[in-house]
Simulated scan of single mutants.
Amino acid sequence: MDHLVSKLTYVHLALWIAVVVSESLGLSSVQPQNVDLYFPTPIAEGDDLTMNCRFKVDQNSSIYQVKWYKGNREIFRYTQKESPPKKSFPLSHVIVDEKQSDMNKLVLRKVPLALRGVISCEVSFEPSFQTIIKTSQLLVVSKPKTRPSLTVEFYPLNKPNSKTGVETVMVKKDDVLTANCTAGPSIPSPNITFFINGENYNSIKLGVLERKQEVTVDPVNKTEIRWASLRLQISYAHFVAHKIRVRCEATLFNLYNETSDQYEAERFRETVMLPSSYGGVYGKNGAGWSMGCGGGKSPVIFGRLVWSIAIVGAVQLVLLLTTLSNTTP
């Protein structure tokens, strides 16, 4: 028993000596003050990327090695005491620029879509060989190659002209506008915003009947196409300078922002035929009635009435002046 107690005493003494020595050398306090991993995200597929791993250590330690990982696959390492200190590891479509990379940064060229995911920076310190790992999520985006496409249709709520059966191509109050916008393919799908006369119509607005969006995914390359639809009942408030202008905009983070061609339609002015003797029409513009060009069979417009009145007045004036001149002594 005494023999066992003496052995335990020696062990405790040895441990105590080790603690004292480590504290005197500063080994027990070898802790990085901070390790920061940062890089721009999202990034567009095919762009270059610089990832930074910054760190500070206390005065009694130094950097032994820095490793970079994509998931659990090592991409690049920097070992300070080796020659050469840099070493990259093959990973599908990942191009490491060793010349520009160093202990604090990793430079990649033409980043592939496959690089998206967890990126890690592993820092080892000596003499303790303590290891600190920092991770962050990288998002790589595949942008659309084209602008969004827009189609616009108007459905007149009023019945077609009973005589001709032809609907006007102009836009009237209470017509229903249907705008369809398609953007993509991309990864992920872009956001779509509709604009009516320059005003964002993705929020609650006057006359909006329905909004719909759908995303379809290609089963092979996993690219996405977004389709969006807006149905709007037209009122006089939707016209600016007698026109309605429709466009859609597609955005993908801060990497893609494109606008479709703009669609324009003019307001149809309702007309009321005057008797044939007037040879013209009146047009209702929503704010009141105004004179306009005729649409009847007579080629003479309403201006003919004005000219007739002017001519009659002129003749009467001439006759009056003639009469006065004859009666003057």
Results as ranks from 00 to 15, higher is better:
Ser308Ile: 15
Gln233Val: 12
Val111Asp: 10
Glu23Lys: 06
Cys53Pro: 03
Ser124Pro: 00
Gln80Phe: 06
Met51Asn: 02
Lys67Pro: 03
Tyr38Pro: 03
Ala237Glu: 15
His93Tyr: 11
Arg54Gly: 03
Ile192Val: 07
Val141Ser: 10
Val300Tyr: 03
Gly288Asn: 02
Ser24Tyr: 01
Ile234Arg: 03
Glu167Thr: 04
Ala183Val: 12
Ser142His: 09
Gly303Pro: 06
Cys181Ala: 11
Leu49Trp: 00
Lys173Asn: 10
Ser24Leu: 08
Gln59Glu: 07
Lys105Met: 08
Phe195Ala: 09
Ala314Pro: 14
Val300Ile: 15
Lys105Asp: 01
Ser276Ile: 13
Ile196Cys: 06
Thr151Asn: 08
Pro144Gly: 07
Lys81Trp: 10
Cys293Glu: 12
Val152Gly: 08
Val57Gln: 01
Pro185Met: 13
Ser88Ala: 15
Glu82Cys: 09
Ala14Asn: 04
Ser124Arg: 00
Leu37Trp: 09
Asp2Trp: 00
Leu206His: 04
Thr223Ala: 10
Tyr78Asn: 10
Gly295Thr: 08
Tyr10Asp: 15
Cys53Leu: 02
Asn60Asp: 15
His93Ala: 08
Ser276His: 03
Thr323Arg: 11
Trp289Asn: 06
Ile187Trp: 08
Thr271Phe: 02
Ser136Ile: 02
Ser62Asp: 07
Glu122Lys: 04
Val171Tyr: 15
Phe194Cys: 05
Ala183Trp: 10
Met103Lys: 05
Arg245Ala: 08
His93Val: 07
Leu274His: 08
Val141Met: 14
Asp218Cys: 02
Gly71Tyr: 00
Lys134Ile: 12
Phe195His: 07
Thr323Asp: 14
Lys297Tyr: 08
Ser162Trp: 04
Asn202Thr: 06
Val220Phe: 05
Gln65Val: 12
Asn72Asp: 14
Pro40Thr: 14
Val246Met: 11
Val140Trp: 09
Pro188Val: 05
Phe89Pro: 05
Pro148Lys: 01
Ala14Phe: 14
Glu153Asn: 15
Ser203Lys: 12
Cys293Lys: 08
Ala237Cys: 12
Asp261Arg: 06
Asn326Val: 05
Glu98Pro: 05
Ile75Val: 08
Ser128Trp: 11
Lys159Val: 12
Tyr78Lys: 02
Lys145Phe: 11
Ile133Gly: 15
Ala18Ile: 07
Asn72Thr: 13
His3Arg: 02
Ser189Gly: 11
Phe129Leu: 14
Lys81His: 02
Phe129Asp: 15
Ile132Asp: 04
Val272His: 05
Cys121Ala: 02
Ser325Glu: 13
Lys143Leu: 12
Trp289Arg: 03
Glu82Pro: 00
Leu138Arg: 01
Leu8Asp: 10
Cys121Trp: 04
Glu214Ile: 13
Arg116Lys: 15
Gln213Tyr: 03
Thr164Pro: 06
Leu27Phe: 13
Thr41Phe: 01
Gln59Pro: 05
Gln59Ala: 12
Arg247Thr: 12
Val318Thr: 10
Pro156Leu: 04
Phe268Ile: 03
Thr50Cys: 01
Leu49Asn: 06
Asp261His: 04
Asn285Gln: 12
Cys121Thr: 01
Val118Gln: 13
Gln233Cys: 04
Asn202Phe: 04
His3Met: 15
Asp58Pro: 08
